[in-house]
Structure formats: structure tokens, C-alpha cells
């Protein structure tokens, strides 16, 4: 099978006024790859994902997303599922109403049976008619997962998805992502936990101060080796940055 690049990013830069977040980011991701995106806080992971999702405009550089023909939308974002720090849920509505609303927007099946199935899948069976306001943080995150991917997207973007999830939730998310991966979906997960990312992904990318600092396939090194290199990349940068420009790290 020929794996053509699904996502191609060239010299991507984003700055908020004087502060550069992404400087010149190059990355090519092929269909079906599972990429774990590492980096310290403020390294530019979130900004990168937001630009990929089409929520934010790059200051310069190019980005192209190639979709398989049968999945082609007028806007590429129709084939992208993005789970951010926000749950994007209406707390006054029930789980069912939330998913129903988003399904109608995203052209996903919006009949009650399939919605309930999705809610059961994330482990919230029996609570689908309760307002989301009553849910705990972890339960909201579970529902947010169901919401973000209810249109069965080709590309899954997740920004620190394990935040707030309990053991069961984490297991579910890992299973869910493995499932998507095995179906040939492209996954990009921003994560700070090295071992968790290593466990799930087949490609490890470290973003540091707005550029790709490390990009290796998992098969090429063990977890221990990766952790060492991850640390090395971020620490040398850290030292050099504690100079007159340290303030820009913020």
C-alpha cells in the first residue's frame, strides 16, 4: 500500500504579536500514522493542533491536508476530529441533547439509538438524560471524546486527552485510539507523559520552542533511550534559553 502524505506542513510559523509560538515547523504525516506529540508547556503543541484543525490561521508557511476521495468535504475540517482542553459541551443540556446537536451539525447519524450507543461506548450508560452540569470532570471528558469523534473522522487530533480521566477512562481512551489506529485513521496526540505516548504511538515527535526538535519512529529506540533523548533535547534548549530572552518563553 502506497502511503501518501496526508498532512504536509512546511515552514509553519505562528506568532502572537511579538511572541513567536511556532517558528518554522516542518512535518509530514502519512495516512494511518499514530503520532505522539511531546513538548513542554508552551512549546507550541496546542497552537499546532489548532492550526491543523483549522481553528487558527498560521502567520506564514503552508499546510495541506489530503483526504481520501470518498471522504472529501468542501472543507477539510469535516474529516477532522479535534479534542481540546475544552469539552465543548453545553452544561445545561443532557448528554443526549449535546450529541444530538453536534451530530446534526456534523452530518452524523442523529437518531436516539445510535446516540445512546455512543454514550454507552464511553461508559456513561444510564446517565444520558442527565444535564452535563451534574457530571464530574472525568465524565465530561468521556462525553467530550464521544462528541469530538462522533462523525467518524479520518484524522484525530487530541490535546492532552488524558487530563481528568480516571483509570477506567484512560483505559477506554487507549482502547479507543488503538481501535481508530487499526482502522487506518491518522492520530496525532499531544501528550507530556513520555511512557504513555511511547506506549500508544508509532512515531514520536518532540516540539521544542516552536520547531520539531526530535522526530523518530518508535521501532528505532527503547522507551529509556527515548526518554533520555527527550530530556536532552528539552534541557539543552532550556539552558540556552535562560538568557536575556528567557522572558519570551512565556
Amino acid at each position: 500500500m502506497i502511503r501518501r502524505p496526508m498532512i504536509e506542513v512546511r515552514k509553519l510559523a505562528k506568532h502572537f504579536g511579538r511572541f513567536p509560538v511556532l517558528r518554522s515547523l516542518d512535518l509530514t504525516i502519512r495516512k494511518g500514522e499514530f503520532v505522539a506529540l511531546f513538548g513542554r508547556n508552551g512549546a507550541g503543541k496546542t497552537t499546532f493542533l489548532r492550526i491543523l484543525a483549522g481553528l487558527s490561521r498560521a502567520s506564514s508557511g503552508t499546510m495541506s491536508i489530503q483526504l481520501p476521495d470518498e471522504k472529501r468535504f468542501r472543507f477539510a475540517r469535516g474529516a477532522i476530529g479535534y479534542l481540546s482542553h475544552n469539552t465543548s459541551l453545553y452544561t445545561d443540556l443532557t448528554a443526549l441533547e449535546n450529541l444530538g446537536f453536534y451530530s446534526r451539525l456534523m452530518d452524523a447519524p442523529s437518531d436516539e439509538a445510535s446516540l445512546i450507543r455512543k454514550i454507552e461506548l464511553v461508559g456513561l450508560a444510564g446517565r444520558e438524560r442527565e444535564p452535563v452540569r451534574n457530571y464530574s470532570r472525568g465524565m465530561q471528558q468521556r462525553l467530550a471524546i464521544a462528541r469530538a469523534f462522533l462523525h467518524d473522522p479520518e484524522i484525530l487530533l487530541l490535546d492532552e486527552p488524558f487530563t481528568g480521566l480516571d483509570q477506567g477512562g484512560s483505559e477506554f481512551l487507549k482502547w479507543f485510539l488503538a481501535q481508530a489506529h487499526s482502522e487506518g485513521k491518522t492520530c496525532i496526540v499531544a501528550i507530556h507523559d513520555a511512557s504513555l505516548g511511547y506506549e500508544m504511538a508509532d512515531r514520536l515527535v518532540v516540539i521544542e520552542r516552536g520547531v520539531v526538535a526530535l522526530d523518530v519512529p518508535k521501532t528505532s529506540l527503547t522507551l529509556k533511550e527515548f526518554e533520555e533523548r527527550y530530556l536532552a533535547v528539552t534541557q539543552t534548549r532550556m539552558r540556552s534559553s535562560v538568557g536575556p530572552n528567557a522572558g519570551n518563553l512565556l
Binding site: H15, R18, P20, S240, P244
Partner: peptide, 12 residues
């Protein structure tokens, strides 16, 4: 001026 600042920052 802003872009000069950015370049200076980029070089560092």
C-alpha cells in the same frame, strides 16, 4: 520593529 524582535528571538 516587531518582526526585528522576532528575528532576534529566532536567532537566540
Amino acid at each position: 520593529v516587531e518582526s526585528l524582535y522576532r528575528q532576534a528571538d529566532l536567532a537566540s
